[in-house]
Amino acid sequence: MGFKLLSKLLVYLTASIMAIASPLAFSVDSSGEYPTVSEIPVGEVRLYQIADGVWSHIATQSFDGAVYPSNGLIVRDGDELLLIDTAWGAKNTAALLAEIEKQIGLPVTRAVSTHFHDDRVGGVDVLRAAGVATYASPSTRRLAEVEGNEIPTHSLEGLSSSGDAVRFGPVELFYPGAAHSTDNLIVYVPSASVLYGGCAIYELSRTSAGNVADADLAEWPTSIERIQQHYPEAQFVIPGHGLPGGLDLLKHTTNVVKAHTNRSVVE
C-alpha cells in the first residue's frame, strides 16, 4: 500500500471513529477524501466538511520552486461564519470567499490569524475590503508590521502568557507558548472536538522541520505538551499544512522538532 493511500485511509478511519463516538456532533463529509496538494491548482481553494458547521479550507501556493498546501478553518456561528487564517495570499483568499459563498452561503463576518507569517495573514486586506472584521493577538499584529505583512485590524486580548485561553464565538483560542513562531495560536472547536494546530503542528508525513527561522526550538516541545494537557479530548487535529489526523500529530511534531534540534547540535 502506497504512503499517500495509507495517509488518506488514516484520515478516513479517524473521521469514521469520530462519527461513531459522537453521532450528534459529527456529520463528516462523505463526498470524498481530504484534498491534497496535487489536486488543488494554485489560485483555487477546496472546502472539506469535518463536522456539522465545521470545515477546513485548503489552498496551495508556490514557494521556492515548489507547491505547498495550506489549511485553515471555518466555523459556523449562528447565521454567520468565523474564518481562521487566510488562504495564503490575496488571490487565494478572494477564491476562498467565493467558494464559501458557493458552498455554504453564509457571510464571513470575523477572521482570526493564528500567527504573523504570510500563509496566515496574506489576504487580510481582501477580507477587510469584503467587510470582514480581522483579528490577531497584539504580538501577531506587531510582528506582521515588522515583517511588512498585512496586519489584522483588531487585537485579541488575554493571550499574552503561555497557557492563556479565551473564548471567541464558537471557538476557544489558546496560546501554548512559542513553537513554530513566538505568537502562534491554537484554535479548538469544543462542539466538535476539532483542534486546529496551525503551523505549530505537523502532518504525519512530514519528517523535516522546514521553516524554523522564527521558531523557538527549545520551547516548542513544552508548548505541545500544554496543548495535549489542555485538549486531551480532541479527536480531529488539523495541521497548518497537509493531512489531518488525531492527537498523534502532536507527538510526531515533537519528535521531528527534537530530531532537528539534535542534528543542529551535532553539526
Rank of each mutant, 00 (worst) to 15 (best):
G2W: 09
F3L: 08
F3H: 07
K4D: 11
K4Y: 09
L6T: 09
K8F: 08
K8G: 09
K8V: 15
L9H: 15
L9A: 13
L10W: 08
Y12D: 14
Y12R: 10
L13E: 07
T14Q: 08
A15F: 15
I17F: 10
I17E: 10
I17Y: 12
M18Y: 15
I20M: 12
A21I: 14
S22P: 13
A25I: 10
S27E: 09
V28D: 10
V28M: 15
V28W: 09
D29N: 10
D29Y: 09
G32S: 10
E33S: 10
E33V: 10
P35I: 07
P35T: 07
P35Q: 08
T36R: 11
T36L: 09
S38V: 08
E39V: 11
E39W: 08
V42H: 08
G43N: 09
E44I: 08
E44A: 12
E44M: 11
V45H: 04
R46M: 13
Y48D: 07
I50G: 02
I50Q: 04
A51K: 07
D52I: 10
G53L: 06
V54Q: 03
V54P: 02
V54L: 06
W55V: 02
S56Q: 15
H57F: 01
H57M: 01
I58T: 15
A59P: 05
A59L: 04
Q61C: 04
Q61Y: 07
S62P: 08
S62E: 09
F63W: 08
D64H: 10
G65I: 07
A66K: 11
V67I: 09
P69Q: 15
P69G: 15
N71L: 02
G72C: 03
G72A: 01
G72M: 03
G72L: 02
L73S: 01
L73I: 07
V75E: 02
V75F: 03
R76C: 05
D77V: 03
D77M: 05
G78L: 08
D79S: 10
E80I: 06
L82C: 02
L82V: 09
L82T: 07
L82G: 01
I84S: 01
I84T: 02
I84M: 06
D85I: 00
T86S: 05
T86Y: 04
A87K: 00
G89A: 01
G89N: 04
A90R: 10
K91W: 10
N92R: 04
N92F: 00
A94V: 14
A95F: 15
A95N: 13
A95G: 07
A95T: 10
L96D: 00
A98G: 14
E99C: 06
E101K: 14
K102E: 12
K102A: 12
K102D: 14
K102F: 05
Q103L: 14
Q103C: 08
I104P: 00
G105A: 12
G105W: 04
G105P: 06
L106W: 06
L106I: 11
P107R: 14
P107E: 09
V108Y: 00
R110T: 09
A111V: 05
V112I: 10
T114K: 04
H115P: 03
H115N: 05
H115G: 00
F116E: 03
F116R: 03
F116N: 03
H117V: 00
H117G: 00
D118M: 07
D118H: 08
D119Y: 03
V121Q: 00
V121P: 05
V121M: 01
G123K: 04
V124K: 01
V124Q: 03
V124T: 10
V124S: 09
V126P: 00
V126C: 03
L127A: 03
R128V: 11
R128L: 09
A130N: 15
V132S: 04
V132I: 13
V132L: 03
A133T: 13
T134L: 01
Y135L: 01
Y135C: 05
A136D: 04
A136W: 04
A136M: 03
P138G: 09
P138A: 09
P138Y: 10
P138Q: 09
S139M: 14
T140F: 04
T140E: 04
R141F: 03
R142L: 14
R142Y: 11
L143E: 05
L143T: 03
L143K: 08
E145I: 09
E145N: 11
E145D: 12
E145L: 14
V146P: 06
V146I: 14
N149E: 08
N149F: 11
N149T: 08
E150M: 04
I151W: 05
P152Y: 01
P152C: 01
P152G: 01
H154Q: 09
H154L: 11
L156E: 03
L156K: 04
G158D: 07
G158F: 07
G158L: 06
S160A: 13
S160W: 11
S160G: 13
S161F: 13
S161A: 13
G163N: 08
D164W: 05
A165K: 15
A165F: 13
R167Q: 13
L173K: 00
L173P: 08
F174C: 02
F174R: 01
Y175D: 02
P176C: 01
P176D: 03
A178T: 08
A178Y: 06
A179C: 04
A179G: 12
H180T: 00
S181E: 03
T182F: 15
T182K: 13
D183L: 01
N184G: 02
L185R: 02
L185H: 02
I186N: 04
I186D: 00
I186S: 03
V187F: 00
V187G: 01
Y188T: 01
Y188H: 05
Y188F: 10
V189F: 05
V189Q: 01
P190S: 10
S191F: 13
S191D: 13
A192L: 06
A192F: 07
S193G: 13
V194Q: 00
V194S: 02
L195T: 00
Y196R: 03
C199A: 02
C199M: 03
A200N: 00
A200W: 04
A200Q: 03
I201N: 05
Y202M: 15
E203S: 07
L204R: 12
L204P: 05
T207Y: 10
T207P: 10
S208E: 14
S208H: 12
A209C: 06
G210I: 04
G210N: 05
N211W: 11
V212S: 15
V212H: 10
A213I: 12
D214Q: 10
D214N: 10
D214A: 08
A215E: 07
D216A: 08
L217D: 04
L217F: 08
L217V: 13
L217H: 05
L217I: 14
A218M: 11
E219N: 08
W220E: 03
P221G: 10
P221H: 06
T222S: 13
I224L: 08
E225G: 12
E225Y: 09
E225P: 02
E225F: 11
R226Q: 07
I227P: 02
I227H: 04
I227Y: 01
I227W: 04
Q228K: 13
Q228S: 14
Q229V: 12
H230E: 11
Y231H: 05
Y231C: 06
Y231L: 03
P232W: 09
P232A: 10
A234V: 09
Q235V: 10
Q235S: 11
V237Y: 02
I238A: 02
P239K: 02
P239L: 04
G240K: 04
G240P: 04
G242M: 05
L243A: 15
L243W: 08
P244H: 04
P244V: 06
G245C: 04
G245Q: 01
G245A: 05
G246N: 14
L247Q: 11
L247P: 15
L250W: 02
K251Y: 13
H252R: 03
T253H: 02
T253S: 06
T254E: 13
T254R: 15
T254W: 15
N255S: 12
N255W: 10
V256D: 04
V256W: 04
V257G: 01
V257H: 01
V257T: 06
V257R: 02
V257N: 03
A259F: 08
H260A: 14
T261S: 13
N262Q: 11
N262V: 10
N262Y: 10
N262I: 11
S264W: 09
V266H: 11
V266T: 13
E267C: 04
E267K: 12
